[in-house]
Amino acid sequence: MKVRSLMVVSAVLFIIAFGLVSCQKKAVIQPDPGQQQQQQKDLTQQKDQEKVTEKQLDGKVDSVNVMDKGAQYAESKESMFSDILFDYDKYDVHEKYKQTLQSVSTWMSKNTAARLSLEGHCDERGTNEYNLALGDRRAKAVKDYLVSLGVASGRIDVISFGEEKPVCREQTEDCWSKNRRAHFTVLVKVGK
């Protein structure tokens, strides 16, 4: 009786131990549970297969939106007003430009059909997105000053180009200071 039961225990142990080995083997060979197909390989000689594909990114992108209708205003060839320059990382308008801005205001009151576009620019040292916001604040600061002088808010558009449209590309303080600017573009009505 005792011997028989010992034999049974040994048999169970043996079976379990054998199972252990095969389990261990499987686990080492297939650490990736996704490759279970491979387990059948020994039986069927079927190898795990993968078809390598790619979603095409090539080709032209179609623009769904129709662009806004052609501008009703054209940019005049040259700016008749000089740029307003700003300190590094700053967007407040210097006292020294108040006379320039007064003359812009006077010109606008005499040329009632004209509109102004104020472009805000930055030097290249900032990062793109922050520079775009900084350029916007610079142009907006100049616009606010002109509005305070009596120019109708609706006659002044503001756009920022950040560091995207520099007037010079040298890495010198002289060049950087020229790029930190609000630039006036007079828009002339050209009809529809």
Binding site: V28, I29, Q30, Q38, K47, T53
Partner: peptide, 16 residues
Amino acid sequence: EGKEMLSKQYQSSKDL
């Protein structure tokens, strides 16, 4: 371990 850990066939078009 002295064992094969991966055995697999990959197929694709020539440009991939």
